[in-house]
């Protein structure tokens, strides 16, 4: 009895190990397919314009060149686009603070109409961008904010989903600490800045990363609002590059790599927090 039992267990465990290997192999094959576009982008960005048109294509650049990246800043105005993108990203952190404040207001105070107002905030998530896009443009135009940095960043400040996540997190913070701080004579604002924000570090970190990624990637709204190339962001500039240098794929790949690589590095370091964000949000 004993031997046959352990035999069965052994064959079952080798079956499990085989399954593990098969699943791992499948994931690897499709995973490689997922990153092929990025690998091809990186390799092509260092090729010359002539080499990129060769058939059959070379895998590794024959003549390794930084010329494409250089041309982004000499022939195109990528310096301006980079500065604008960083400015937009910086401004969007003001929006992050506003979302945190609102989350706190909804989480820790009782006031008239609170639940209805919160529902209203959530309801705005369901309005499709296509409906608000044109009127927001007209509203900004009526106060002369089109073609300005304020016009680009202001409509994107508030994220209803961000407020929802801040509220979720801050509701769970203990009231006792708030009471103790109030007894020490601190104002509500001091309480928020010196007690609540430091205690909300996990959610702040995730939201800060997502805000950075969102600001860095912002495309459609800058495209609509900015008439002037002086206000273009990296993605709008890259779209322009695609139009102007339609067949120079080496230059295009350099532009794409310049946009994608910083975000990929940030993501690889921060992925644990971003992925766990979905556990905080309670979507299960």
């Amino acid at each position: 009895m004993q031997p046959s039992n352990s035999n069965a267990a052994r064959s079952a465990s080798s079956g499990v190990r085989l399954q593990q290997w098969l699943v791992g192999l499948t994931l690897t094959v499709f995973g490689v397919a997922m990153i092929v576009p990025f690998v091809w982008m990186m390799l092509s960005a260092f090729k010359t314009e002539g080499e990129i048109k060769q058939i059959p294509p070379t895998l590794w650049p024959e003549t390794f060149t930084f010329d494409n990246f250089h041309r982004l800043f000499t022939e195109m105005d990528f310096t301006t686009y980079l500065v604008n993108t960083l400015l937009i990203t910086l401004f969007s952190f003001v929006g992050l603070l506003l979302n945190a404040m609102a989350g706190f207001g909804f989480a820790k105070y009782r006031f008239k109409g609170r639940d209805k107002l919160f529902l209203l905030v959530l309801a705005t998530m369901m309005i499709p961008g296509q409906v608000t896009m044109i009127p927001v443009y007209l509203i900004l135009n009526s106060v002369n904010l089109t073609n300005t940095m304020i016009g680009i960043v202001l409509p994107g400040f508030i994220s209803a989903f961000g407020i929802f996540l801040f509220r979720q997190f801050m509701s769970a913070l203990p009231d006792e600490i708030m009471e103790a701080t109030r007894l020490d004579g601190a104002s509500e604002y001091k309480l928020f800045l010196q007690i609540i924000l430091p205690m909300s570090k996990p959610i702040l970190a995730v939201q800060a990363i997502l805000t950075f990624i969102g600001g860095w990637n912002s495309f459609l709204w800058p495209l609509i609002i900015a008439n002037d190339e002086k206000l273009y962001t990296l993605s709008v500039g890259l779209q322009l590059l695609k139009g102007q240098h339609g067949t120079n794929y080496a230059l295009q790949m350099a532009g794409a790599a310049f946009m994608v690589v910083p975000i990929m590095i940030l993501f690889v370091f921060a992925q644990k927090h971003i992925i766990e964000n979905y556990n905080i949000s309670g979507i299960k």
Binding site: G31, M34, I35, P37, F38, W40, M41, S44, I213, W216, N217, F219, L234, S235, V236, L238, Q239, L241, K242, Y249, Q252, M253, G255, A256, A257, M259, V260, I263, M264, F267, Q271, I274, I275
Partner: peptide, 18 residues
Amino acid sequence: YYLPSVTNVVAVAVVWSY
């Protein structure tokens, strides 16, 4: 598998056009 979701749509479209 998550990586493509965080990258910029214009950059990605430029790469895929190629």
